[in-house]
Nucleic acid binder design. Sequence first.
DNA 1: CAGCATCCCGTTTGATACTG
DNA 2: CAGTATCAAACGGGATGCTG
Lengths: 137, 137
Amino acid sequence: MSFDEVIARSKAACEALSDEDDGLKREVLAHAGNRWSLGIVYALAVSGTLRHAELARRLDGVTQRMLTRSLRQLERDGLIVRRDHQEVPPRVDYTLTALGRGLLAGMMPLGTWVIDNATSFRSARDRFDGHDSRDKR
Amino acid sequence: MSFDEVIARSKAACEALSDEDDGLKREVLAHAGNRWSLGIVYALAVSGTLRHAELARRLDGVTQRMLTRSLRQLERDGLIVRRDHQEVPPRVDYTLTALGRGLLAGMMPLGTWVIDNATSFRSARDRFDGHDSRDKR
DNA sequence: CAGCATCCCGTTTGATACTG
DNA sequence: CAGTATCAAACGGGATGCTG
């Protein structure tokens, strides 16, 4: 696809992201940049249904607090479903919704682009941070 | 594409975003969710080269401070080029790089997905926020 | 014109400890 | 086991005023 086509198709997207009812669309986009959201979605996409502790084991370095918060956010936007089995001891599991699977599919091109150009970002930063000496990252 | 294929292709992306040198890739992804980044990239994609004040006019509601900050971030990651003409009065303009055009292209699928499903997010939120009354954000 | 300084607020992320 | 409470740091975002 030519870049002109990209621009034309981006028009609706970029305008919708500025007009905006309230910023909901940008908040959904922000899931992409959030620390754990994408990892959670991916883990659920692979495994189908997971409990809190199982997710914690798969996401290296996540704390209970952040896992809970991230799950709430994803649930709020309809990307995952939280099912509380009302048992003792507690038993809660999470499943990806169709919407959540859509996020993963939509993220893919951007994700692979980021990976493909990782070295470009790295060198751009090194150049930038090198120019004025202080304040690295 | 089947969802199994999506998962398979997402594998590299999601793993690269967790291992991580330092989080650079996630920071680049975060540009998508940032308040002004995408709007700046789009404006430059359409117009080619713009000055600070011209960008400010195109981005409704942006303050000079946030515009400057956002431009710096994009410049740091190599998505735009800042050119200072060293004149009096000051004259500085910004241009999208090939990397920046790539961001827009990579963002497109995700952007259109968000728009297509905006009503789903809306209703999911209303349902969620309705359940436990407090904290409507 | 471009953008820096200052002060401000809310959110994200986090470590640690505690509860039903 | 799943989740909350508390405390703290860093960051995004903004309003206002000043400078070369």
